[in-house]
């Protein structure tokens, strides 16, 4: 009796394995073939001088080269500026919008979600080309509006000036980043346990206290998720730069992602490009780690 039972169990388990993997197979094929394999290759080739003509092991020299490369350091700095400005801005701003509208009627909150999602749906390329026109030195709307309002006295070459170009990029990045966080915050705030909020209000907590002591801890997982995705997106800012400035003027808007593209596709230095890619991945991992730590300590 005992024997047959275990045999049955074993047979059952084998069946589960077989069926499970059969269902997993199509997805695993694509995942292993087009995500995991290139990921492994990126790591391996980052230790080589892989290019159009060469392919030899060079140890850490790509990594050493990166840290001696003034352009890489500049692009690293620009990338960090973009991340450190846009991540807090996007998070706080979307939280503000969401808390202003999440109690409104279905119609209003739908409308807000649609409006702030619009720049993302419109598509990076379409959004970028229209901004390029608006930023244009001669025909751009921005110079006209700012001059009419008396904010500036003569035309500014927004994208051609190292002092303003990066901020133009950050502005556009901002408009294409806050849609998803707003949607997430609206749903998170709507899911906050109302009995806790009521209990807090009965105990005489004011608006701010209710928010920071009761709602904030409950929406923490959402905040964390938003921080992580916004960080990843900001680190990977590429299309805007390729289409608007090509990293210029004088590398003022060069980012790691653009630098990788430039070395790999314009100069065919795949090994070096991959090494910078691995550095970027490490940087994102470090940022995410600290965001998790921060979120944890804030929750306790």
């Amino acid at each position: 009796m005992q024997y047959t039972l275990t045999q049955q169990a074993r047979q059952r388990r084998r069946r589960e394995n077989l069926v499970g993997y059969a269902f997993m197979l199509p997805s695993l094929l694509f995942f292993l073939g087009f995500v995991i394999f290139p990921m492994g290759m990126a790591l391996v080739t980052s230790f080589t001088d892989y290019s159009m003509t060469t392919f030899g092991f060079v140890g850490l020299s790509n990594y050493i080269r990166a840290f001696k490369d003034a352009v890489f350091i500049k692009s690293l700095g620009n990338t960090l500026v973009i991340v450190l400005v846009s991540v807090p801005l996007v998070t706080l701003f979307s939280l503000w919008v969401a808390s202003a509208v999440y109690k409104s009627s279905q119609f209003t909150s739908s409308l807000i979600r649609i409006i702030f999602y619009l720049p993302i749906v419109t598509g990076t390329v379409a959004v970028t080309v229209v901004w390029k026109w608006m930023f244009n030195n001669y025909y751009g709307l921005l110079n006209y509006v700012f001059k009419s309002l008396g904010i500036i006295s003569s035309n500014i070459n927004w994208l051609g000036n190292p002092a303003t170009a990066l901020w133009c990029i950050i502005t556009i990045l901002f408009t294409t980043s806050i849609g998803q966080p707003i949607v997430l915050y609206i749903s998170a705030l709507a899911n906050v346990d109302p009995s806790l909020v009521e209990a807090g209000e009965v105990d005489g907590a004011n608006h701010m206290q209710v928010f920071w002591k009761i709602k904030w801890p409950q929406i923490m997982p959402t905040t964390l998720y938003i921080l992580v995705i916004t960080t990843i997106n900001s680190f990977q800012c590429f299309a805007l730069i390729q289409l608007l400035t090509s990293g210029g003027p004088n590398n003022a808007t060069n980012t790691i992602m653009y630098n990788i593209y430039y070395h790999a596709y314009k100069l065919n230095e795949y090994g070096y490009g991959n090494a910078m890619g691995i550095l970027l991945a490490l940087l994102i991992a470090i940022f995410s780690f600290f965001q998790f730590r921060l979120a944890k300590s804030d929750n306790e």
Partner: peptide, 14 residues
């Protein structure tokens, strides 16, 4: 969680 673009060079080769 991994930055998608990092794998694009090897992906292109593949």
């Amino acid at each position: 969680a991994l930055p998608k673009q990092v794998i694009l060079i090897p992906l292109l080769k593949e």
